[in-house]
């Protein structure tokens, strides 16, 4: 009974907030972009908001990438530049992060840890910082207004965006009618360019370490004509799966982070009071989890690539289950 009453009261409060506050603060139009939007086009012209007709686009995810780089530089400056034998303050934290991940990498492959660790740890730090910046309040909601009049002239979606409640009433910090908000910050991991770059480098490094450790013997797992036609086919499938890894690395990260942002935006759009909170907490978890998954998978694939042909199949399937 008590639980039922509590639920009823919560629903009543929710309904009052939804209808009452909804009148005062009507919702803005939902705007979701799969692409990272361009803020400025270098040597080119803006087209539809967030896109460059020509020239090099400085996208919001590129801006965030630079911020992540700066954060990492700050981490070096305050955490490792004057590293003391007896750690103090921020050095403790940096040591904890690097040391924990290093111990884990040693657990994965003790022999080759010195080769595998730099990229895997860089990926970990880069992804986790990217994801967390994307979750920060303001990322995705504070930005510049770009007109879509030109696009409308070319038969774009101008009609659809015309009814902007805030804009029509001249609210502060809102775009004029005929303009679209392009956020300044966007999680780099919610931009396929960044995840694809990471995936490409990861897979190239995996092949490089495999070739370096096993020599031409490494290629036997892809072009196996010694053990009969069955293994030739399996080798071909392995070759395809190696290429697919680029895509799976890139889209796993992009999909998780972008989907998380979409979920939060949609929930905030539907019912912005309290409802997004548990999802926000879940997205924080996902943000950390994806960084771990990417770096650990990289470590495991690198370790598998450097091991001789026999007996690597089981590990492959085990790791691919992620």
């Amino acid at each position: 009974m008590r639980i039922r009453n509590a639920v009823l009261v919560a629903l009543a409060i929710g309904a009052v907030m939804y209808f009452g506050l909804g009148l005062v603060f009507p919702r803005e139009d939902l705007h979701i972009s799969v692409k990272a939007e361009a803020l400025v086009c270098i040597g080119g012209e803006m087209g539809y908001p967030g896109e460059c007709k020509s020239g090099f686009p400085i996208t919001n995810s590129l801006v965030t990438t630079v911020i992540v780089d700066l954060l990492l530089i700050l981490m070096i400056v305050f955490g490792a530049r004057n590293a003391q034998m007896v750690p103090r303050g921020f050095q403790n934290f940096v040591e904890l992060v690097v040391g924990t991940f290093y111990d884990f990498a040693v657990g994965v492959d003790k022999k080759n840890v010195a080769k595998f660790f730099p990229f895997a740890a860089t990926a970990f730090l880069l992804i986790i910082l990217s994801n967390f910046i994307g979750l920060m309040p303001g990322a995705g909601s504070i930005g510049m207004c770009q007109p879509y009049a030109k696009a409308a002239a070319e038969g774009g979606e101008a009609e659809h965006h015309a009814a902007n409640y805030y804009a029509e009433r001249g609210w502060p910090l809102t775009c004029e009618p005929g303009e679209l908000l392009v956020p300044f910050l966007r999680a780099p991991s919610a931009d396929l360019n960044m995840t694809l770059a990471l995936g490409l480098i990861s897979v190239v490094l995996i092949q490089y370490f495999g070739l370096k450790a096993l020599g031409w013997e490494y290629l036997v797992r892809f072009f196996n004509f010694r053990e009969g036609p069955m293994f030739t086919v399996i080798g071909f499938i392995e070759l395809i799966s190696e290429v697919i890894r680029i895509v799976s690395f890139a889209f796993r990260l992009f999909g998780n982070i972008f989907a998380g942002e979409v979920v939060l935006v949609v929930l905030a759009h539907l019912f912005p009071y309290m409802l997004p909170l548990p999802f926000y907490a879940f997205e924080v978890f996902v943000a950390a989890m994806q960084a771990v998954i990417f770096s650990v998978l990289t470590l495991v694939f690198m370790s598998m690539a450097t091991q001789a042909h026999g007996g690597h199949d089981d590990a492959e399937h085990g790791a691919a289950a992620h």
Partner: peptide
């Protein structure tokens, strides 16, 4: 999907730069 060759190459350079910088000065 928003894949732009220029941005892709920029991000790859960024990753390589970060690997170099972090392993040299942090790891």
């Amino acid at each position: 999907l928003g894949i732009n060759w220029g941005l892709l190459i920029a991000q790859m350079f960024n990753v390589i730069f970060l690997v170099w910088m972090l392993s040299r000065f942090l790891f």
